[in-house]
Design a protein around this nucleic acid. Structure first.
Length: 496
RNA sequence: GCUCCCAUCGUCUAGAGGCCUAGGACACAUCCCUUUCACGGAUGCGGCAGGGGUUCGAAUCCCCUUGGGAGUACCA
């Protein structure tokens, strides 16, 4: 009992390896934009590689010709780069175990498949889809697990001749040996599968392309992968894959299967739950840094408990044995909070640059770069996503402000406000608009002078006249950015 | 159906038989700060799915039940 525990919590074989032997990969299919789940898997692989001083490899699995698209490949590159996960080897950067796109490796799969045929580990399958469907249906009716009948294993030369005459194209099937496949998963612990439940699965399709399970193993052998970190939806594939490793007499890598990321309703995260692609989150104004930080915490936790942790620190803190084996629900609340944290603590100049794409509807040229930085500084606090800034800065642009009826009747047109505003215009004559601190001081004095009006009433009057709102950035700073002319003209318009 | 995985506050999690009266974060509530919203600070709310074992002692180990998830393709 103690022994099992020990195995689960240590990564024995790592110790025998030098760091250069640590090689992990992310292998997405370009059948859609980079998904949150894939992104997290990529992240864990990256973190492990960087923590161990190993290599992180990108491989594009585009054997599904119909569904693979070049634009998705590009999206995968862009998203990974935005997250800061630069790969050491990949289709675009090369490497000595390439090519890194499966569609460029077709000859290799064929070659490896033929080796298995030669060694008696694989055979041709001639069944039509209909025949296979029929087999499955029978299994279903009899409530038996479906296992391929192996009938092509024993096909006579005559039968094969007729198949050929019918213009059938064969697939290649792996001859599954009768045994128990056992492996020690780095996050799940000891796992065992009985191969009698696994049918002789396909390794090459009739169109000459490899199936996923075969291509993965060929690539992982040839690319010398040491650890396979992936989602737990691949656990049962692992048994098949180990069989293939064994048939080749290849070294079997370490496996680590991570719990899935689920939607709030505990189903698989999909389009109907909103954004699922990394690029969508970035578009909405989530900072890639915050996003990365957040998804790291879905299934992993740092030993020191510090949750706000930039990528470099996560790399230092990362270890596989702190990966959780249960699934995690993706909720926006904490992501939103974390994004706000990053927005509040980011260097202002950097933030100003990042926010510019959300400010295209405004004429920014009226402000200097310094003023723009200052503007961002004073409005950043309540932002959840970068996109929030678009609406929150509208009163900094244009001559006039929109004041809706409610604010007009409840704030602007009150006797108190009408009392404050003319006095404020007087103040403007002596106000030093070029100096924010001075403005604040004079505003302070003004508030005092307006007693017995409450400070709140005084400030609301000015705020409403200038911004049309009862809430927003510090009003002294607003006055500074707006400048004398606009301040006076807006206040005058508010006076009845 | 069959096989496998998983199970701590609403959510993310800490937890490796005694450090647990189960800790932290988000969310929520209240209060404080304040020219507003917010930020920040303080406090509160809230959980070991259920049942059996093992043990002097169980969130932790074992079994069953229940609930969730995945796989069962010439998709990846």
């Amino acid at each position: 009992m103690l022994l099992i525990k020990y195995e689960k919590h240590s990564i024995l074989s790592e110790k025998k390896m030098t760091n250069n032997d640590i090689r992990v990969r992310i292998a997405p299919s370009p059948t859609g934009n980079l998904h949150v789940g894939t992104a997290r898997t990529a992240l864990f692989n990256y973190l492990f590689a960087k923590n161990m001083g190993g290599k992180f490899i990108l491989r594009i699995e585009d054997t599904d010709i119909e569904r693979s698209k070049e634009e998705y490949t590009q999206n995968i590159y862009d998203s990974l780069k935005a997250m800061g996960l630069q790969w050491d080897e990949g289709p675009d950067v090369g490497g000595k175990y390439g090519p890194y796109k499966q569609s460029d490796r077709l000859d290799l799969y064929n070659e490896f498949a033929q080796k298995l045929v030669a060694s008696g580990h694989a055979y041709e399958g001639w069944c039509t889809q209909e025949e296979l469907e029929a087999e499955k249906e029978i299994a279903q009716v009899e409530k038996n697990p479906y296992v391929y009948s192996k009938k092509c294993l024993t096909a006579t030369p005559e039968q094969i001749e007729t198949y050929k005459k019918e213009d059938r194209k064969p697939i290649l099937r792996f001859k599954v040996p009768d045994k128990k496949v056992q492996f020690n998963d780095l996050v799940k612990g000891n796992l065992e599968f009985d191969t009698s439940l696994i049918g002789d699965f396909a390794i090459m399709k009739s169109n000459g392309t490899p199936t996923y399970n075969f291509a993965v193993v060929v690539d992982d052998i040839q690319m010398k992968m040491s650890h396979i970190i992936r989602g737990e939806d691949h656990i049962s594939n692992t048994a098949r894959q180990i069989l293939i490793y064994e048939a080749f007499g290849a070294k079997i890598p370490e496996f680590a299967h991570v719990g899935m990321i689920l939607a709030p309703d505990r189903s698989k995260l999909s389009k109907r739950h909103g954004a699922t692609a990394v690029s969508e989150f970035i578009q909405q104004g989530y900072l890639p840094e915050a996003f990365v930080n957040f998804i790291t915490l879905l299934g992993w936790s740092p030993a020191d408990g510090e949750e706000i942790k930039p990528l470099d620190d996560i790399i230092k803190a990362f270890s596989i044995d702190r990966i959780s084996s249960s699934p995690a629900v993706f909720e926006f609340d904490k992501l939103n909070w974390m994004n706000g944290q990053y927005i509040r603590h980011m260097d202002v100049k950097e933030l100003t640059q990042r926010v510019k794409p959300y400010l295209t509807k405004y004429d920014l040229s009226q402000y200097s770069e310094e003023q723009l930085n200052y503007l961002v500084e004073i409005v950043r606090e309540p932002l959840t996503v970068l996109g929030d800034i678009t609406d929150s800065v509208s009163y900094f642009f244009g001559e006039n402000v929109n004041i809706d009826d409610e604010i007009k009747s409840t704030v602007i047109d009150t006797p108190e406000t009408q009392q404050v505003l003319p006095k404020f215009i007087e103040l403007c004559e002596t106000l030093d608009f070029s100096n924010v601190e001075k403005i604040h001081e004079q505003l302070d004095e003004f508030r005092q002078a307006m007693k017995p009006l409450k400070p709140k009433q005084t400030m609301w009057a000015i705020r409403a006249a200038l911004t049309g709102l009862t809430r927003g950035a510090d009003i002294g700073s607003v006055i500074y950015l707006l400048g004398k002319e606009r301040v006076i003209s807006r206040v005058q318009k508010a006076i009845k």
